[in-house]
Design a protein around this nucleic acid. Structure first.
Length: 291
DNA sequence: TCTGTCTCCTGAGAGC
DNA sequence: TGCTCTCAGGAGACAG
């Protein structure tokens, strides 16, 4: 699932496929859950425009257009942005792959889950937005517009400080993990990296946020930045559907300490990793290393 | 204001 | 083998 590292890797990888290429045509599927802005308005707004740059705010990608407006993309859980040149088994579901001959299982062809296709004036490849579960979000942002989805975002997770976490957690009865997942507090952290950062800082996910000490807040903020930076370096986590725009898998999943390792031995102490539900989310931790 | 619950969606995997 | 059910998760809406 795309969190800050996967979105940042997508942003960097997408630059050569989008920036500076005049958009000739945009195809979309019918209005659905992914289109915050109606798809016909998106098509009109993008056709003929050129993406000048791509920014990131938390887990949102902002395509800066040459007319001053922006097109905003959130990948949700299963969103994929990739070039038509990309080849990866992750671009099709296992069910879809099983119905195809081996030679056609890697090369992607637009399917019903492909909600947008960008075509360009040059001879270069199209760019696809695909999202099986439709938890992604697509919307236009006018120049100088302040969108409530972006306005509420807290400090970017790569810049989070111990003091910010400590101040944000005072008087909060919610578990510390729920606080980390609150995008209004830290923008960019999701389930995987919250678990990993809590492990590295030695804090259990179910601890009440207000009970976290200043020293623990510092360790936690350091751990958040550390796991996110490391994941970006390794291309993100390809645990389920995530694939970079060039078709490459990330490698951070091989470095996980706790996430989705229920019952496996802790890499530090050997104790079995525990899974429990915290704030309606699965949380994984080491009962020995995390207090 | 804070917290918990529900909702959206669909593929994967478990269980029968 | 095939069917049914449960689970996973980001984030907004809503109720208490």
């Amino acid at each position: 699932m795309p969190e800050l590292p996967e979105v940042e890797v997508t942003r960097r990888s997408l630059l050569p496929f989008l920036v500076g290429r005049p958009v000739a045509r945009v195809k979309t599927t019918r209005p659905s859950y992914v289109f915050v802005t109606p798809p016909d308005r998106i098509r009109k707004a993008l056709q003929g425009r050129t993406v000048q740059d791509i920014d990131r705010l938390g887990k949102y990608l902002l395509l800066r257009l040459d007319d001053g407006n922006s097109f905003v993309i959130h990948l949700g859980m299963t969103g994929q942005l990739f070039s038509a040149m990309a080849t990866s088994p992750r671009l099709l579901s296992a069910t879809a792959r099983s119905s195809l001959p081996p030679e056609e299982q890697l090369r992607f062809k637009p399917d019903p889950h492909t909600h947008m296709v960008f075509s360009f004036d040059d001879e270069g490849p199209d760019v696809y937005f695909r999202d099986v579960r439709k938890f992604g979000k697509l919307f236009l942002l006018a120049q100088d517009e302040v969108h409530p989805r972006l306005e509420r975002l807290g400090l970017d997770a790569l810049e989070v400080t111990g003091e910010h976490l400590f101040a944000s957690s005072r008087k909060r009865k919610t578990p510390i993990k729920a606080l980390l997942l609150d995008q209004a507090v830290v923008a960019g952290v999701g389930n995987i990296y919250a678990d990993e950062a809590l492990f590295l800082s030695g804090v259990r996910p179910g601890r009440r946020a207000a009970r976290i000490t200043r020293a623990e807040s510092k360790r936690l903020s350091d751990a958040i930045r550390q796991v996110l930076q490391r994941s970006i370096e390794t291309g993100g986590s390809s645990i389920s559907d995530y694939v970079a725009p060039d078709g490459q898998d990330g490698a951070y999943q091989d470095e996980r300490h706790v996430y989705a390792r229920k019952g496996e031995p802790c890499k530090r102490c050997g104790a079995a990793i525990v899974r429990r539900v915290v704030a309606q989310r699965s949380a994984h931790y080491c009962p020995q290393c995390q207090k």
